[in-house]
């Protein structure tokens, strides 16, 4: 690249500043762009709606605060949906900080659900190292892997876990996943080995690698991808939260990025043409 072209480039700090402003302003002054739901989000919603009341499900919190803006709203909307449908939630975590993420959501929700009791309608089994090997062992003997919950209460004293010896009596597994170990391992073991329905929510970065699992084989039943997926789910469950609030900012920021990509390409072609003319 010639020095001439370099001189014509915008200082990238202006782009950063513009993006910062374009994200901040829509958060303060709400525009209210419409949010359309996709088939993948509707499949997730349908899975929870079709799960019989009183069923027990695993929600695996496989993320940490670095992915909180994308995955936390999904987790909150999902747990709320499960409580509304009277589905009992067993929380596991393949990431250490996932335990706190789940607790954060439960402490936010529990005041709105005074009838839901810890140990009967919700339990947090804590973190287990090992990734795929741990999931495989859970499928063989859940009680061996989680002999107690995160507070040290024996599994035998937790009514929610009565009859849970492996994946057999579970309605479905839902993985909130920011990477490895995460949703891929749940698909490989819980669905492809033990034949249980698996669904999930992932960060935008990992979505392209996970979406192919939503196929005719139903390796995944729907998928919530990134902040947009979270906003779609909030819309479906009629519980607008941080994801819905963030979608205006997301749309404006994307518009700015698209404008800069077009500007960059126009500039590229103009410079190329000018260089060609210079050589001739």
């Amino acid at each position: 690249m010639s020095e001439n072209i370099k001189k014509k480039q915008i200082d990238r700090r202006w782009i950063f500043l513009l993006l910062f402003i374009s994200v901040a302003l829509p958060l303060i002054f709400v525009i209210g762009f419409p949010i359309e739901t996709t088939e993948n989000a509707r499949l997730v919603y349908g899975l929870i709606e079709q799960t019989p009341k009183g069923s027990k499900v695993i929600i695996s919190f496989d993320y940490d605060p670095a992915s909180k803006p994308e995955l936390h709203p999904m987790g909150k909307a999902l747990m709320k949906h499960c409580f509304d449908r009277d589905i009992k939630v067993i929380v596991t975590a393949l990431w250490p900080m996932g335990v706190q993420m789940a607790e954060d959501i439960y402490s936010d929700l529990k005041d709105n659900y005074p009838d839901k009791k810890y140990g009967e309608d919700y339990v947090n089994m804590g973190y287990k190292a090992g990734g795929i090997v741990t999931i495989q062992a859970m499928g063989k003997n859940f009680r061996d892997i989680f002999p107690q919950d995160m507070n040290g209460t024996s599994i035998d004293e937790l009514p929610i876990l009565d009859g849970i010896n492996n994946f057999d009596n579970l309605g479905f597994v839902f993985a909130l996943s920011a990477g490895d170990p995460g949703i891929k391992q749940w698909v490989q073991i819980a669905h492809d080995t033990f034949g249980r329905p698996v669904s999930g929510g992932v960060t935008g970065v990992s979505a392209p690698a996970v979406i192919p699992y939503v196929n005719q084989q139903q390796q995944l039943i729907g998928l919530l991808a990134g902040l947009k997926g979270a906003a779609e789910y909030e819309l479906l469950t009629k519980t607008p939260g941080t994801a819905t609030k963030g979608m205006d900012a997301q749309s404006v920021a994307h518009l700015i990025i698209i404008i800069f990509i077009i500007m960059g390409n126009i500039n590229y072609w103009r410079n190329k043409k000018a260089e060609k003319k210079g050589v001739e």
Partner: peptide
Amino acid sequence: AMARISLLIGRLQ
């Protein structure tokens, strides 16, 4: 791009 903007949204929120 969506994921990175989401992180910025999270910080700004």
